[in-house]
Amino acid sequence: MSFPRRQPRTASPAWQERHKMGTFVAAYAAVWLAVVLYVARLGAQQRQLARSVEGLQLRLEQRDAEQRSPSVAA
């Protein structure tokens, strides 16, 4: 059994031009995808840090309130 031979890539100048443009677009898409993923990771870490800061702030406020309440009672 034999398969028909694949058409060479240099079949037509128009196909060749599209292929070159496709390579260019693929390279740029790869760059921007990687950058977007990295920036998204930074954003996620920033949000996590913001939550940690808020949690810590809350804990410090609670601790201050607890320390203040016995003196008020006294």
């Binding site: 060749q16 031009e17 070159k20 443009m21 390579t23 260019f24 390279a27 740029y28 760059v31």
Partner: peptide, 9 residues
């Protein structure tokens, strides 16, 4: 052709 533009990035 346009594939050469990859060089810049």
């Amino acid at each position: 052709g346009d594939a050469q533009r990859i060089l810049y990035v």
